[in-house]
Design a protein around this nucleic acid. Structure first.
Lengths: 170, 170
DNA sequence: CGATAATTGTTATGCGATATATCAAATGTA
DNA sequence: TACATTTGATATATCGCATAACAATTATCG
């Protein structure tokens, strides 16, 4: 991002802001070095974001994991369960019940592959496409918009880039 | 991470897929709008970071949650279970077994408060202080160092600041 | 003061996500 | 053909997280 040219000053500000819990004592507990722990902030932020996602998309009753499956099926129709699951970091045994849920709601279908009759070809149904379209709209207008208001577009992009890099290379 | 199962046979496929990365469908599934989803990157990054943390601090057998408890006890000695648990976002019932584990390893102690005999005053033991000191060193030299090498100090601080803001205000 | 409400730690319990072992059917390979 | 691998599935165990309920203690208020 563009802030990489404002090192010293922004750095101290950020440090002080993050560590402002060690000024004065009172009723509130001091986080101390906890606020410098990446995993701690990462997990608390993730919980908040998931919570907001679930709330925003509540009328459609889709969890973040289910939404990610639908998105991946839309973008990659005709793949089998192993491919979809492994791409999302889901173990195959756990993906079975997940698909059961989506299929029972008629959002997607399993069809035996003609090439390889072991595997199931996965596809969204019309209803699945429709629900996904509505979900995307809700996520865009309610969920992601909120992040933009909090961080601004460029910092939001910088954040996404850093998170992707960590997920990829850490 | 998930791409390691490719047998030597699909080399041609992989090469072709890499040569035409924006046309048709190839070997690798496309994430599509998934990479723009904050929650998705957030969760995958968090899993990676926790995994690395556990690996780095493996000789001391401390989970991220346990480490955070020890850190908070060091910084805030004499608090009760409700205060520590709620600060970390842990529900009191679940904090009981967590404390049992730490206390059975003699890393901390519960003492009945003289003011309020309902509550337990929590404190680190000498062993708890020692283990925490060693854990801090491992985290600093192995874990956080790795993040600095990946992002650089200023981007790392920017990331922490944004995550804290999300955890706080989202 | 005394009756009632609230707090603290605890137990029990359920749910969901995650992990491994195992299986039958289908396919690949020596 | 015989053996190994892959795919989807089942069973199962563990862990994190959530709620209800309880005894002991303390706070509140009539």
């Amino acid at each position: 991002m563009t802030v990489s040219k404002t090192p010293a000053l922004d750095l101290t500000k950020t440090v002080r802001a993050a560590a402002r819990d060690d000024t004065g004592e009172g009723d509130v507990l001091k986080l101390g070095e906890l606020s410098e722990l990446l995993g701690y902030s990462l997990k608390r932020a993730q919980l908040k974001v998931f919570d907001d996602f679930i709330h925003c998309v509540a009328p459609l009753q889709l969890t973040p994991a289910q939404f990610s499956v639908l998105l991946l099926l839309e973008r990659n129709p005709g793949r089998n369960q192993t491919e979809i699951a492994s791409t999302l970091g889901i173990l195959r045994p756990n993906f079975v019940s997940m698909l059961d849920g989506l299929e029972s709601r008629e959002l997607c279908v399993r069809m035996r592959s003609t090439n390889d009759r072991r595997s199931h070809v996965l596809m969204l149904t019309d209803k699945g496409h429709a629900i996904l379209a509505r979900a995307k709209k809700l996520v865009a207008t309610k969920h992601e918009t909120r992040l933009n208001e909090l961080l601004g577009p460029e910092k939001r992009e910088a954040l996404l880039g850093m998170l992707a890099k960590i997920a990829r290379e850490f």
